[in-house]
Design a protein around this nucleic acid. Structure first.
Lengths: 338, 338
DNA sequence: ACCTAAAATGTAAACGTTTAGATTTTGTCG
DNA sequence: CGACAAAATCTAAACGTTTACATTTTAGGT
């Protein structure tokens, strides 16, 4: 026995007023006599009226909803960023529609088309392809966009990044200070900002310290765990093994550590290690792992703040803005010289 | 220079047909001549028309959106469940609105009110309080609900759970088989199904094996990391220390392990250990950790499937359904008798 | 009591679809 | 060629708000 939804009309007629007046009290716009307001509030309570946000969006042309599109919720980095976004969003009366792209451009395009239909008020995205043109349709729509942790080279959008180069630089510098000279890097995809910039930081640090770059010690991964695992094995198989490894992200660190573990390639004894982004393991691993950490929740919060600035007033900033959050090197034991 | 959104009307007039016909081709309902269809498709392409889902929802009275409300996205358990939900949802043409309650009843109520306004088609929830009546308003709405990992004792809703008691039982049994006799438990909140049932499994296993329950070895946590940490310290401070510890969830395991680490209370030497829900650490910790694992993605998928059954046809199942997924004990080294 | 400005309330159009039911077009068959 | 059923298309109402503008009520001043 489905109960009919009660509408603003029902409330109006029960309270003996017009829908306009009801609307005014529901939206707390003031300018209605206390006595009538009371009548209306009572009617609302009696009927259990709840305003229909769909109809409201229809005329208001805003949904108070933002879309969030990231590659994978399961990655602790993203789940924390999302958490930061979501927390800030509800605080501001927005809701968050979430989709993951599994790093597929096709899925990305689909999701975005869908977001478009739904009329989200803004988008926060970590794209799978920074150079892709597949966001065209969405970008045509004038809906504000913030790119987080990745850039969108073909479009002018606000961007929230971390100090990737700087973080990596600091890590490598720290390793050299400890006396490591044969430092390998497990790189992320060079088509992504974090992948590329972290590598640049690595190169620059080595250069600045007069250490030659050895091709063999540069191996590529895709930011996934398995690729970190393979990369570590590759490095181990080398005639001339590195004496330290820098891993470009959390998942690859996990994989690499797993491999090292299996190979009995011992950090602290045979090997120094630093990874970008802290992982749960770092304080359990023997020895503890030196890591580059960043406040991911905050990254999410800032992303939303940037987006909100655009949603509230699209003319507030003429040019794209860029926020860069500095990471910090947390020195533990894995970067100590044996 | 904001471009005016093009509507179905624009398309209709450009293609020289009525809106009804356009609607039919947009929705692929058939019954329109190939020639007209072509005209319409061309008009759509030319104008860059995208259908307005808000208006559509308005008349269809469905949003193709489900709400997901969990305590904390950051917990790997939930992020995996969500991932499972979301994956299945998009596959079925649904979108997912996500909110976290931070285990607060007030936030839960607020979010739910909001969900109600927005007219979600269904809800998947892990409530903060299984006995709470704070869902009243939502429950009155006839929107299908699935409870996941927790029950909703005051309402008749479909529920997706894990074999909590069974999993704990198996774990404790395994410990006893290994010769442990002084087995402690770090309990979760007894007001929650996982907290309570895992404890019940613990008790039953001890009983069945003729081992007395020792009050001292039962300590309470709140499923948070800090509480696991404190619990382990409490156990360590005991005159008569346990020789094995069972931790009721992932975060508490993390905390407990941290404490044990600090206290140099060594698993594998002084102590056996098993935790409910696998954590990243388990294969890195020395010794490797025996854990009760479950397929969280699948838990999410099933939740969505249950929900969909109700959304598609609310009369398909008269009574509430309950799904219980068996976990599996992954035996590693932390449960070996020294 | 009357006038007037301000305050309160009301009226009705608009938002962009979907969909019954009405109407027109098409094609087949005698 | 006309009749008729089937196929294609159209018309218009409905969905539940918000809001500009119109109208009525209120209250203060004379």
């Amino acid at each position: 026995m489905k109960k009919k939804k009660t509408t603003i009309l029902d409330v109006a007629s029960l309270a003996n007023v017009s829908v306009a007046t009801v609307s005014r009290v529901v939206n707390k716009q003031g300018g209605v006599k206390p006595r009538t307001e009371k009548k209306i509030l009572e009617a609302i309570a009696e009927l259990g009226y709840v305003r229909n946000a769909i109809a409201r969006s229809m005329v208001r042309k805003e949904t108070k909803t933002i879309g969030v599109l990231i590659p994978d919720i399961t990655n602790p980095f993203f789940s924390r960023v999302i958490s930061g976004i979501e927390r800030e969003a509800v605080r501001r009366g927005y809701h968050t529609i979430l989709s993951s792209s599994q790093d597929s451009e096709d899925i990305e395009r689909n999701v975005l088309d869908n977001f478009l239909e739904r009329g989200i008020d803004g988008l926060i995205i970590t794209t799978s392809n920074e150079y892709g043109q597949h966001l065209e349709r969405f970008m045509d729509s004038d809906i504000p966009v913030v790119a987080v942790d990745r850039q969108l080279h073909h479009y002018e959008v606000d961007t929230v990044l971390s100090g990737n180069r700087e973080g990596a630089y600091e890590a490598i510098q720290h390793l050299t200070n400890q006396g490591f000279r044969k430092i390998a890097i497990i790189r992320g995809p060079q088509s992504t900002t974090p992948g590329l910039e972290r590598y640049r930081g690595y190169k620059k640090a080595l250069n600045d310290h007069g250490i030659d770059i050895v091709e063999e010690w540069i191996v590529d991964g895709d930011f996934g765990e398995e690729s970190g695992y393979q990369a570590a094995r590759t490095l181990y198989s080398l005639e001339d093994k590195p004496d330290a490894v820098f891993s470009s992200n959390n998942l690859m660190s996990m994989g690499a550590l797993k491999a090292m573990n299996e190979l009995q390639w011992e950090i602290g004894k045979d090997l120094g290690f630093i990874g970008f982004d802290d992982i749960d393991i770092s304080t359990f691993h023997k020895p503890n792992l030196t890591m580059i950490a960043r406040n991911m929740q905050h990254l999410g919060k800032v992303s939303f703040d940037y987006l909100r600035a655009r949603m509230d007033d699209e003319n507030e900033f003429k040019h794209k803005r860029e926020y860069i959050m500095s990471p910090s090197l947390i020195i533990r034991d894995s970067s100590k010289r044996p």
